[in-house]
Amino acid sequence: MEEKKIKGIVQVYTGDGKGKTTAAIGQGLRAAGHGYRVTMVQFLKGRDSGEVESIKKLEPNFKILRFDRTRKFFWNMNEEEKNELKNKINNAFEYIEESINKDEYDILILDEIMAVINNNLVSIEKVIDILKNKPENVEIILTGRNVPNQILDIADLVTEMKMIKHPFSKGIPARKGIEY
């Protein structure tokens, strides 16, 4: 297979609508189908999900990493749990900082990174440093609500998922295979 080199850009999937992670995974799936190496780091997600099981079947071209395995929502955690989570997220960022220049992947997805930033689990400066200093051929995809303006300024592509209607408002809970 011929060597692939892309000009990597920064993509953001945001908004209050459903589909941010799904869009990022779809982009990763497309890239893996062309032989690109994709790594997705999922933050603040611990429940077993269909996407994790599907991605396992695509290894080694598409890997998913979870450093925190959170089972509670952040706002339901006590201070000790929040500190433990912050340490695990810092471990994830050590991995990202060490691996980004080692040519280990072509596409890096940082799923729910905006929640990590907005909950002060990692500094925005750390994320911006990664975005500004990424190798030219690495594509970075970020997901999550409430994107800081500094990241919007850096991003090359920003897509907003807007909620018009959602089954939660009818009392329909998250469904296995559909929402997770």
Rank of each mutant, 00 (worst) to 15 (best):
V127H: 07
N90G: 09
P60K: 05
K72L: 09
I151P: 07
E53D: 03
E51A: 02
L65F: 13
F73H: 08
F74G: 03
T159V: 05
N149K: 10
L108Q: 04
I55Q: 01
V38F: 03
Y105C: 04
K126H: 09
D103L: 03
V138R: 00
D111T: 05
M163Y: 09
N87W: 11
E98Q: 14
T159I: 02
K132V: 12
I124L: 15
M77R: 09
V122G: 01
V116I: 13
E94D: 11
I107G: 08
L44R: 04
R37A: 06
R71S: 15
F62G: 04
K134F: 05
L121R: 12
L108H: 02
A155E: 08
M114N: 14
S54D: 09
I141D: 03
V127C: 13
E79D: 13
R66N: 04
N101E: 10
S54Q: 06
F67T: 11
S54W: 03
I154N: 02
K45V: 06
Q150V: 15
D68I: 06
Q42F: 02
I164F: 01
V158L: 00
L65H: 10
E160W: 00
K134E: 08
I130Q: 10
E160S: 00
V122L: 04
F93Q: 01
E160R: 00
K72F: 11
K56W: 06
S123R: 15
M114L: 13
V38M: 01
L65D: 08
E160Y: 00
M161F: 12
I117V: 15
F62P: 05
E53V: 09
N133R: 13
M114A: 13
E98A: 10
S99L: 05
E104G: 04
N119A: 11
F43W: 06
K102S: 08
N137R: 14
F43C: 01
L121I: 12
A155G: 06
V38H: 02
N76K: 10
N146K: 14
K126D: 09
M161C: 08
R47S: 11
K88E: 05
P135R: 01
K162S: 03
P135A: 10
I164Y: 05
G144Q: 11
K88R: 12
D156N: 11
Y105A: 04
I100V: 10
R66S: 04
K134I: 07
V158N: 00
L121C: 13
R145E: 15
P60N: 05
L58P: 01
R47Y: 07
L121F: 14
F93A: 02
F67Q: 04
G50R: 06
E139F: 07
V41H: 01
I117Y: 12
N118V: 14
E160K: 02
N149T: 11
L108R: 00
R47N: 10
F62R: 00
M161I: 01
L142V: 06
Q150E: 15
E80A: 15
I64F: 01
S54I: 11
N83I: 15
T159M: 03
D153G: 06
Y105E: 02
S123Y: 15
S123L: 13
K56G: 02
V147R: 08
V38Y: 00
N101T: 07
